[in-house]
Design a binder for these strands. Structure first.
Lengths: 238, 238
DNA sequence: CGAATAGGTTGTTCTAGCACAAACTTCGCC
DNA sequence: GGCGAAGTTTGTGCTAGAACAACCTATTCG
């Protein structure tokens, strides 16, 4: 009760889907929300499971994962604070299309799925903003397809690191440090390659001063060079 | 005028987004629509172009294409009759995310984009149905990513053909014939490989009685075998 | 504190499938 | 009815990157 009351309106009032709302509406939405903590490694929801809730990540990082029949894992995306997740109802699904696991300790709010339609009808701008989010995720997915179909492993890994650095890093004196634990294996699951190849690439890049990396840690020290690797056209050898 | 009046309500009344509508509503929607023909090879809309219209394909087949900076093409999906396309407004975009070209002669209806919000508000079930469509396309895209990241070329091509055969084929005495012109090059652009590799695969499969193929033509003669190729787990060699 | 475990590196081998080349077939069209 | 363009086949390299193996280094936890 007291923990519910303690949810501050500023927590969510700046987040896109809620940005255009009146203070009272935000209050209402918060009152309907349940906050929950997940510790690193915990599963927030599972692929194929009935989507009984949708979530807003307030703090921490979440990995969205799909698994093949053969047991291979693919990391579809990373969710950072301020993003909605598990929004199956938005796209007419009753079931989650992927699993979500907490990378570090996370704080989320969640609502029962049946409230989705209420939100969409009642709160001006909520629908448009979330559909914009959906649209962005479609574009991301399509770009990912384009990359997998046309680019070399080196470029794909370069792009993946660039995106992560832009999406979720802190700037240190070394450069842009990706601010959640990230293994070679993780990177390989984002790019459709093997942890060995990623390891070799990182080693090579470290020698060229493009990145610094350690156990579960990657720092981009020269974004310019990384970008030029990502943009390299493999066909342009004329 | 007379061509407009000639649009029959049965044309669209059975199509998911319109299925739940009253006859009058269907009439209204048809009256707002412009019909247009495209001949084989014509571009219906182009990637990055401002999305001024959304379309319903009434007859024919459309290829949805994305092009990389390096000039490579990727076929994102095929649209068959009865499907909406160019629905950028549904996902909060003002611009088309891909190009659409007519594979054979096509008949489409289109509406100005600004009618989208009217449709969503005014017609019960239109929103839910279209968001379901959006959801299906997201799933498709994610499956495609999974495939590209984890499967061998042979499986990807097998799957692509399976899907096409299911989605758009006529049954002849030979088997399921994909009912629009489809080249080796096209298949390679759907699966992220080269036309040479596709050609070799088709030749091999033809010898095994799985497919029959000719110029711009593919017939699946043994869906069961094709499916077992698609499902083959490359890791399962123990 | 020391063993177990998770993560990382690097060498070696091997092959799927790309690249390029060349010839063949089918089709549309003047 | 024959020419050119578009589509297909097949052969011959060749290499990116997967697979496997072995070893190393942090971390964690009893």
């Amino acid at each position: 009760m007291s923990s519910l009351r303690s949810l501050d309106e500023n927590l969510i009032s700046h987040i896109p889907p809620f940005r255009k709302l009146e203070r009272v509406d935000v209050r209402e939405i918060l009152d309907a929300a349940t906050p929950k903590r997940f510790s690193a490694g915990q599963t927030i929801f599972e692929e194929h499971e009935t989507a009984e809730r949708f979530f807003l990540l307030l703090d921490g990082h979440v990995r969205v994962i799909r698994t093949t029949a053969g047991g291979d894992q693919v990391i579809a995306r990373h969710i950072v604070s301020g993003e909605l997740m598990g929004i199956a109802p938005a796209i007419g699904r009753t079931t989650y299309p992927a699993s979500a696991v907490a990378i570090d300790d996370c704080l989320v709010l969640f609502w029962p799925t049946n409230l989705w339609s209420t939100f969409v009808e009642k709160y001006e701008g909520f629908a448009t903003e979330t559909y914009k989010t959906v649209g962005e995720r479609i574009s991301e997915a399509n770009n990912h397809i384009l990359e997998l179909a046309t680019q070399q492993v080196e470029q794909r890994v370069a792009r993946a690191l660039m995106r992560l650095a832009i999406q979720s890093s802190r700037t240190t004196d070394e450069g842009m440090e990706i601010d959640f634990p990230l293994t070679r294996q993780n990177i390989s699951e984002m790019t459709g390659t093997t942890l060995y190849t990623v390891s070799r690439l990182l080693s090579a890049w470290e020698k060229q001063g493009i990145v610094t990396s350690g156990r579960k840690k990657v720092v981009v020290t020269d974004m310019g060079k990384l970008k030029s690797l990502a943009d390299l056209d493999p066909m342009a050898n004329s």
